[in-house]
Computed example of a mutant assay.
Amino acid sequence: MTIDGRTRVIVHLAYPSAHLRTPTLFNARCVERGVNAVLVPWEIAPGDLAATWATLRTARSLAGAIVTIPHKETAATHCDRLEGVAAELGVANIVRRDADGAMTGRLYDGLGFVAGLRQHGYEPKGRRTLLLGAGGAATALAQALLEAGVSELVIANRNAARGEALAARLRRLNPDSVVATGAADATGFDLVVNGTSVGLDGDPSSPVDIATIEPGSMVSDIVMKPAMTPLLIGALTRGAQIHQGEHMLAAQVDLFIDFLISDAAAGNETRRPALRLA
C-alpha cells in the first residue's frame, strides 16, 4: 500500500481498539481493488466522541468513519443524514464525510451478518432465534433477521427494560413478525446469536448457559477476537454448528468501500432514501 497526498483516510472509531480486525481486511481489499484509501484504528472513549466528531468534520482528507462498540448509537445522533435501516433504527456503523463536511450514516451490520450466514450455507428463514443483547450491533442484527424471515425472535438482555424497548420498536417496524423478550436460555432455539461483546479478547464468559444449547442448532458470535470465543467452543461441545464473527465483517468490506469512496466520487447519486436529522 502506498500512502500519498491523495490518499483518502477512514478512521475506525472504537473503545477499546486493540481487538479490531477490520483495518487488516479493509486495507487489503483496497489494495486488491486499486483504491487509494487507508483505514486506521482510533481508540476514542465515549466521553470524547463529540469532540472527536467535530474534528472529523473539518478533516478534508477524511472519507469517513467505520464505527463499532460502543459508539454505534451515539454516532447516529451526530450524523446529519441517516439512510436506509439506519434511519429506522437510529444506529450507524459506517459514516461518510461529504465534501461540505456533512456526515451521512448507514448501517450494514445486519446485512453483512445475514449475508455471511447464507454464504456459509445456513438459511435463517423459518428459524426460531435467540438474540443476546440489545445494543447497537444487536439492534442491526435483529432487524436483519426479521427481514430474513426468522419464525420468532426472542431478545435476551441483561437490562430487561432496554431489551423490551428494542422489542417494542421492532414490533412497530415489523407488525407481522413474532418478537419477544426472554431469558438467556438457548433451549428450543434453532439459531443463537451473540450480539454483545461478552467473550471479547480474553473474557472467559459466555452470554448464555452453554448447557442449554441444543445439539444441531446454529450458534453465531459477532465477536472476532478471539475467533473461537468461549461461546463457540462451548457450542461445539454441545454438538452445535458454529458461525464466527469474521464472516459478518467480510461480507461488509466491499459495501464500506463503495459507500465511502465510490458513492462519493459519483456525486452521491446512489443514495438510498434518507432521513434528515434535526
Rank of each mutant, 00 (worst) to 15 (best):
T104Q: 02
A102K: 12
P226Y: 02
V198N: 05
G202V: 08
H243S: 12
V91C: 05
S220G: 02
V178A: 12
W53T: 14
G136D: 09
L130K: 08
P70T: 11
E152F: 03
E43G: 07
I222P: 02
R271F: 00
V95T: 04
L132W: 00
T68M: 05
A156Q: 08
L191V: 00
A156C: 08
N268A: 10
R271K: 07
L170C: 11
P175H: 10
A45E: 14
I261R: 04
A240D: 01
S151W: 03
P273M: 02
A251M: 04
A63G: 13
I155T: 10
G202K: 13
A168N: 14
I210S: 03
L111K: 02
L132Q: 00
A18V: 11
L89K: 08
M103I: 06
T74S: 15
S205C: 10
L255G: 01
P175K: 13
A115D: 12
Y122E: 10
L56Y: 14
W42H: 13
V91R: 10
R106H: 01
E246G: 00
A102I: 05
L170T: 09
G90F: 12
G112K: 04
R162K: 15
G182Y: 14
A99S: 12
E43W: 04
R96A: 15
V193R: 04
T7I: 07
R118K: 14
M248G: 04
R171M: 11
E164A: 13
R97Y: 08
A51M: 11
A250D: 12
A51R: 15
A86W: 00
L231H: 00
V253L: 13
T187C: 08
T104W: 11
Q241H: 11
F256L: 06
A134C: 10
L111F: 01
R96F: 01
A65Y: 06
G182N: 12
E88C: 03
S205D: 15
R96E: 06
T55K: 09
P175G: 09
E73I: 15
A142G: 05
G188W: 14
E246Q: 09
L232A: 01
T58V: 12
D100Q: 11
A45I: 03
